[in-house]
Amino acid sequence: MNVGLYHYLLLGAILFATGVAAVVTRRNAIGVLIGVELILNAANVNLVGFSRFSGGLDAQVFALFVIVLAAAEAAVALAIILQLFDKRTDVDVDRASSLRG
């Protein structure tokens, strides 16, 4: 089977949809974080795919940035989640709603 741009974008779309579904449906903060990572990597797949078929390396550099960004984001988010756990003994995002209007 000849792998083309179509397959890249399809994989990206599936990953994105999975990530969004995770973010929206999970009540566990870790699950939400994993969903966000899936969304970011969906974007990475798209960037790599475009890079592969347009002949430049710019997009791959962007993908590297996104990976670094995701690592930083995971560090910050996990720290927040740890704090949340300290305070409330659970990590249920639905119950952590004290900022609501």
């Binding site: 969004v20 973010v23 929206v24 449906t25 939400v32 995002v93 639905d94 952590a96 709603s97 004290s98 900022l99 609501r100 209007g101």
Partner: peptide
């Protein structure tokens, strides 16, 4: 407007 602010992240997303 405040009724829209549920504090639930899934609603926002």
């Amino acid at each position: 407007v405040a009724t829209a602010q549920t504090g639930r992240i899934r609603n926002y997303i």
